[in-house]
Design a protein around this nucleic acid. Sequence first.
DNA 1: CCCGATTTTGACAATCATTCTCAACAGCGC
DNA 2: GCGCTGTTGAGAATGATTGTCAAAATCGGG
Lengths: 143, 143
Amino acid sequence: MTAATHGPVRMTRQRAAVADALQGVEEFRSAQQLHEVLRSRGDTVGLATVYRTLQALVDGGDVDVLRTDDGESVYRWCARREHHHHLVCRRCGRTVEIDGPTVEAWAHRVGEEHGFADIDHTVELWGTCASCLAALRNATPEA
Amino acid sequence: MTAATHGPVRMTRQRAAVADALQGVEEFRSAQQLHEVLRSRGDTVGLATVYRTLQALVDGGDVDVLRTDDGESVYRWCARREHHHHLVCRRCGRTVEIDGPTVEAWAHRVGEEHGFADIDHTVELWGTCASCLAALRNATPEA
DNA sequence: CCCGATTTTGACAATCATTCTCAACAGCGC
DNA sequence: GCGCTGTTGAGAATGATTGTCAAAATCGGG
């Protein structure tokens, strides 16, 4: 009930640009950041269009989205479409896709133990990656 | 670098009211919802003050906060101050506090394996609680 | 190659939760 | 009660995201 209200989907320069830009980065990026990337690349795409396209990609399952601590949505074109989690650098966005078979089982078991059904889970790891750690050490010798 | 810039903390009618309202509900509630609860109770507290107080309570470790799908922050005065996760009914908001020792260890190990430091994790479970399940069965015999 | 029906775009306004501003106000130790 | 400060609140400001709608672009058909 989300699509089907529209006719055929058209391929446009803007959509191709957004998809391409997203596939060109390894990190999770906000809509605004991607808009800037496109801009600096020479691809002129309206900010609203970037948002619309990203939403469509998420709905289509091509892109993963999650929220940062301050509530901003960040997007990433993940290698695998299957269910997985992320280890994200909270400073630069660098991301590692990870599995969590143990977690899946645990989540399901805990849910059933409490009489809950249709268990779904949110599991994301945040940290500071090695290079950002080094950068921080240089920039801030001490407090 | 967040506190320590201020002197002694003062107990005010507003702070007591917010804390009390929060302890009066079992579910996660948004700042705006709490503001409304206070209002209907007769406690006049400015919205900004509700936000400030909630933030302080979160910082103090008395209250847990998490984000709903649409990015709104919701708060809950949890029974235990120690680190824990939540199993939340996506229909009625009923919440069960849960431990996840295995998950903690797993999160930390995965982080280190990839050279990340200061690992933090977001682990929340969503499901449909028993009573909501029954209610749904009555309302919707089948699809 | 051009047309036309229909989908998309983009500049800008509108939302909305949350934070900021700052003068008036209220704890609390004396 | 006094005064020093931390606190409040009304409203402005912020900032990401979404809505509006006329102009522009897609693409199948002629």
